[in-house]
Design a protein around this nucleic acid. Structure first.
Lengths: 254, 254
DNA sequence: CATTGTGAAGTTCTTCACAGCC
DNA sequence: GGCTGTGAAGAACTTCACAATG
């Protein structure tokens, strides 16, 4: 399955676990906040709390990057910010295109979090001719016809798909053919891509469905046996919000 | 510090693995598409392809729900749709509130994927007095002052936070105090909640950072494979994304 | 006999617990 | 003394492979 892999001596990192990679941005965000407050060093315990993970996990994660801490002291904030940024490839500029400028696409275009992390929105692309030229987030929307040229001219390797589900695969194919090798997909559909292309997906309704599952679990402990029943009994499950809050008070943020 | 311990793995006897729960919405989406095409039955192989997972995993996932298939034949589409919907708690109506009606909040309010999955946007809430009364997605924005009443009146147990990072924790505390027990957080900050409250997180810039990491890795290995010869033939690709997916694209460890 | 359902093996991730160092 | 770094144990998840079965 793994295509012929060659050594990549550029970075010393020998395979950082995917789970760790997924947390690095979290650490980076917490560290950036500390940096802005001019905090010079931080312990794994403090940083872990700020990032919402446990300290053993954080230390283990950092151990994959190298030994960047000082025993008895902690980690140098600035130094860590730099190391993690470098590891994530954020020391360079990544031009991205957003395809599909509907409500979500426009919101993404306006989202400040991209620019502040080394991502530059190079172009906004939409299939609707009526959108062409219209300014969104201070930049004119361009037509899909020019997709290939835009990708090429700007050296874009990361594309964001915010089109309706029906158009996503087609857009994806064109992005990939034009040279894009990483895609962030907001369309609620499974994208098929060639080897070597990374796809991450964000599905808003899926997140809610997962919450609903757990919510349902909380709602009642009474019905014990309603599982592998087999009988398709049209559930009459009625929405029954839990009692008038008689529970835990909000946690006090430090 | 954050909550000392935020356990959730209280997986009782009949607990469905979290990784499986995260995939159920994916299966449901694929099944719904088949259902609309009036396909009566589907094999694990076919359904797995449509959902972007491998068939062994899918069968294993379904085995946690019960024995809903027929050996030699496959799964009854309608029946599975019902069973998964029930398992996810989608046979009931879930009123949700969206707090923070900026670009993203408005996009979420307009997102059709919620309604079609049993989620009903019960109210839009914003702290800006200028927004109050303004219609967004055909419904008037209400002021934060009324948050508690809105939650209570509508029996809301799921809240979506789309405010700036600085306001998120405060909004979260109020939602929780008012009775919300599941939160979908779009603000780029770690939320601290009492035990019993679920938080899922979607962070757009984190997703891009993870892509950037892999993108950086690719730089160096010449992709002799898919030269863009115009044939955007998506070979049977693998959506080799890793991670807790359901859980990690943007999942909060809690 | 095609396909499910599932023990068992394999892999990845998390947590523990403590040696090692400042 | 305080805190990092990490081997090892443990838990969760994935994949294999094949018996079971309609």
């Amino acid at each position: 399955m793994a295509t012929g892999r060659t050594h990549r001596p550029a970075t010393r990192s020998r395979g950082i676990p995917e789970a760790t990679v997924a947390r690095l941005p979290l650490y980076l965000r917490a560290l950036t906040a500390l940096s802005e407050r001019s905090v010079p060093t931080v312990s794994s315990e403090e940083l872990a709390a700020a990032a919402g993970v446990n300290s053993a996990k954080l230390r283990k994660d950092f151990s994959y990057l190298g030994s960047y801490g000082t025993r008895g002291v902690g980690y140098d904030v600035e130094y860590l910010v730099y190391q993690i940024s470098r590891e994530l490839g954020l020391t360079q500029d990544w031009p991205v295109v957003i395809v599909g400028i509907g409500n979500l696409g426009a919101a993404l275009a306006n989202y400040g979090g991209f620019a502040s992390r080394g991502f530059r929105v190079a172009a906004l692309i939409d299939a609707d001719p009526a959108m062409a030229g219209k300014p969104v987030a201070g930049m004119p929307v361009q037509h899909t016809d020019d997709l290939e040229r835009i990708i090429s001219d700007n050296g874009v390797s990361i594309g964001v798909i915010a089109t309706p589900a029906g158009a996503a695969q087609q857009v994806c194919d064109r992005l990939v053919a034009a040279g894009v090798t990483s895609i962030l997909n907001f369309a609620p559909t499974v994208l098929t891509v060639p080897d070597g292309v990374d796809v991450r997906k964000v599905d808003l309704s899926i997140e809610l469905q997962i919450l609903a599952f757990h919510e349902q679990r909380k709602a009642g402990e009474e019905s014990a046996a309603d599982a592998a029943d087999g009988t398709a009994t049209p559930a009459v499950a009625k929405d029954h919000r839990k009692g008038p809050d008689g529970d835990v008070p909000a946690v006090m943020p430090a």
